[in-house]
Design a protein around this nucleic acid. Structure first.
Lengths: 358, 358
DNA sequence: ATGAAAGCGCTAACAA
DNA sequence: TTGTTAGCGCTTTCAT
C-alpha cells in the first residue's frame, strides 16, 4: 500500500524502535484516537476503518506500549507476590498456583522475598535485615496490587503495609484490626483430627508436637491446638510435649535422638511441624531400631510431595498450598477491580491424610 | 513551612493520590527539573536547595512514579524469568538464586511459565498449548530483558525469541547460530565421571541410564555421554541400556520393576536422569530385596535436596542450579547495560558427588 | 464515526 | 545553579 513495503514486521514507517500508535495511525490514514479505539474495543469504529487499522497493526507488528498505557490507565496488570522465601516444596506450590491464577485473571506476577526478622530471639548472630523499609524496596508504582505472606511477627513489614493504599492481600497473618483481605489456614481442624487420631491408640502423655520456629504463626497455633485437644481428652500436657526448632530434617533427627536417649521415643505419637521434620524423626527412629508405625507413630504437616516419597509413606495434615496461592490472587484481583468492596477473610481448612506412618 | 502542615505523609499539597514531582516542587519552591535532579543525583544542585527538596520529599512521602520514569528512561528495572515449570526443587533452586541476583543488580523479577510442547509424541492426549505466541503473552514493554529457560525443542518459542530485539538470555538451550547470551550446563564432565565411577566395579553391560523425557536436552545429552563413555571403555552398549520416561519417582520404580523382572537389576549400575527417578529405583530395589549399593549401585542427577534425604544417601551428579539462576541474571544485566557487547556463552560444569548409593 | 488536543508524571535538552 | 519546555506513547474528553 505505502511506498514502504517490506515483510519484516519489525520495520515501521519511520521510527527505529518498535512501531508506535502514531506509526499505525499514519499507515492506516487515521488519527491515533481511532487506533486507540480499535485497540481497546470499547468504542465504536466503522467496520471498514477498523479493518484498515488492524491490518496496519499486523503489518507493523504493533504492540501497545504497556508503560505508556499504564501511565494513563494507572493499571499495569502486574501483581506482586511477596513470600519469606522462595525455596522448597512449600513456597514452590504456592507460587505455582499463584502464577496460574494470576495468568487466568490477566495478570503477571512479580515475585519478591523479604527476610522476616522475628522479634523473638533466634540463634542467628546477625539477622540479615535487608528490608529496611520492606515496601519501598518494591517498585510499587509498577504494581496493581500485592499479595504478602507473613509467617512471623514483623512490626516493620506490618507497619509499612498498613500505611500504603495499594491493594494488598495478606496471607497467613491473622490481624484483628486490619481491614485487609486475608487468606488464612485453619490449622485447627487438621491438628485436632491428627491429635485425636493419635489419641486413639497412644496414651496422651506419650504424644508430642515437634514444631518449627516458635515464632511461626502456624507452628504456634498447631502446638496450641494439639495441647488443647490433649487437655480436652482429660490429660494435662507437660511442657516437654511441645518442642520448637526449625523446619528442617536435622531438627527432627535431633529431637528424635534426644527423645530416644530420654527413653521417650518408643511408644510415642508425634505430630511434626512439617513433613521434613517428620521425615527426620522417621530416619532417626529407624536408626535407633524403632519401627514406624508399630513402635512410633508419626504425622507430618503440609502434605508436600515429600510425604509421598518416604517409606513408609508419611501420614500428614493436608494444607491446601495451591489454594492459598490461588485464593490470594483471586482476592487481590477482586480488590483491584473493586477497591471499596468490604474486605473478606478466607479460612482454608486442613485435614488429616492417613498414610502409613500413623 | 507551608500553610498545609500535617503529619500525615500521605497528605500532599493538592492532589488526592500519592504526591507527584510537581507537589514536591511546589512545596520546596523549586521547579520540577530541580526535584528531578536531586532524585537522580547525577546533576549539580546547590546544597541548600537540595536539602529543601529532600525535606519536601520526606514530608510528602514522595516516591517517583516508576511508570512515568519508565516512559522517559525506557527502563523499568524489571526482568522476566521464564521457565517451563515453577514446581519442585529444581526450578525452585534456580528461581531463588535468580531472585537474589536480580535484587543485587537492582532489578525485580517477573516470573512466568510456558508449557513447552515437545515435538515428539507424549502420552498426553491434549497437550495444553497456551503459548500461542509465547512472547506476546508477556508484557514485554514492561521488561528490560528476559531470561528464558528452554529444556526441549520448541519451534514456536524459538522463533518468537529470535524475532524480538529485547535483551534475552537463553538457559539450557544450545543454539549454534544464535547470537544470544547463553547459560549452559556441561553435562559431559559429570556424566562421564559418574559412568567411569560405575565402571570401576560394575561391568559395562550392566550399566543403565534411566532418563527423563527423550526430548529433554539434558536427558538426551546425558544418555549420549554415558553410552559414549561405555563405548570408549571398549564395550558396545545395547539399546536397552538407555531408557526414557519422565522425571518422576514412579517412572524410576516402573523401570526398576521391569528390570528386576527381566533379571537385569541385580548387580547393575544405574545413572538416573534426576534424583527423583533415582529414588524411585531405590525404593523398588528395596521392595525387591535388592540392597543398595551392595547389589545395585545408583547415581542420581541434579543434587537436589532430595539426594540428602534418602537413606542411604544418594550419590548424584551435582548440577549448579543456583549458579544457573545467578549467571543468567548477571548475563542479562550486562546485556541490558551494554546491548552491543558480544554475546557470551557460559558453560557450568557438573561433577559427581559420591554419597552412599554407589 | 472520527479527529484535535490535553494531559498522565517524569527526564533531559536548552536557556538564562 | 536553576527554570522552561518539549516530549515519552498512550487514553480520553470534547468537538465536529
Amino acid at each position: 500500500m505505502t511506498s514502504d513495503r517490506t515483510n519484516d514486521p519489525a520495520a515501521s514507517h519511520r521510527s527505529a524502535g518498535p512501531a508506535s500508535i502514531q506509526d499505525v495511525a499514519d499507515a492506516a490514514h487515521v488519527s491515533i484516537a481511532t487506533v486507540s479505539r480499535v485497540i481497546n474495543g470499547h468504542q465504536l469504529v466503522a467496520n471498514e476503518t477498523a479493518a484498515r487499522v488492524r491490518e496496519a497493526i499486523d503489518r507493523l507488528g504493533f504492540r501497545p506500549n504497556r508503560v505508556a498505557q499504564g501511565l494513563m490507565t494507572r493499571r499495569s496488570k502486574l501483581m506482586g507476590l511477596c513470600v519469606p522465601d522462595l525455596h522448597g516444596e512449600f513456597y514452590s506450590s504456592i507460587l505455582r498456583a499463584a502464577d496460574g491464577a494470576a495468568r487466568k485473571a490477566g495478570y503477571h506476577l512479580l515475585v519478591s522475598t523479604f527476610t522476616t526478622t522475628p522479634s523473638a530471639p533466634t540463634p542467628a548472630p546477625d539477622p540479615p535485615r535487608e528490608e529496611e523499609d520492606f515496601l519501598s524496596s518494591l517498585p510499587l508504582s509498577l504494581l496493581d496490587g500485592m499479595a504478602v505472606m507473613i509467617t512471623e511477627p514483623n512490626r516493620r513489614v506490618l507497619e509499612s503495609i498498613q500505611a500504603t493504599s495499594l491493594p494488598i492481600v495478606l496471607v497467613d497473618l491473622e490481624t484483628k484490626g486490619s481491614d485487609r483481605d486475608t487468606v488464612l489456614v485453619d490449622n485447627t481442624t487438621g491438628t485436632r483430627e491428627a491429635t485425636l487420631h493419635l489419641l486413639e491408640r497412644t496414651p496422651a502423655d506419650k504424644l508430642f508436637f515437634v514444631g518449627g520456629p516458635q515464632t511461626n504463626f502456624d507452628t504456634l497455633h498447631r502446638s496450641q491446638t494439639m495441647m488443647e485437644t490433649i487437655t480436652r481428652s482429660g490429660a494435662t500436657p507437660r511442657p516437654d510435649q511441645a518442642r520448637f526448632g526449625d523446619y528442617s530434617l536435622e531438627w527432627g533427627q535431633r529431637w528424635a535422638r534426644e527423645a530416644f536417649d530420654a527413653g521417650k521415643l518408643r511408644g510415642a505419637g508425634v505430630l511434626a511441624g512439617n513433613d521434613e521434620i517428620a521425615w527426620g524423626i522417621m530416619l532417626a527412629a529407624q536408626q535407633s531400631g524403632i519401627s514406624v508405625p508399630a513402635e512410633l507413630r508419626i504425622i507430618g504437616f503440609d502434605d508436600t510431595r515429600l510425604s509421598t516419597l518416604t517409606r513408609p509413606m508419611l501420614s500428614t495434615v493436608h494444607v491446601p498450598l495451591a489454594q492459598i496461592g490461588t485464593c490470594a490472587i483471586e482476592l487481590l484481583a477482586r480488590r483491584i477491580s473493586d477497591p471499596k468492596a468490604s474486605p473478606s477473610t478466607l479460612r482454608l481448612s486442613t485435614s488429616l491424610v492417613r498414610r502409613e506412618t500413623s
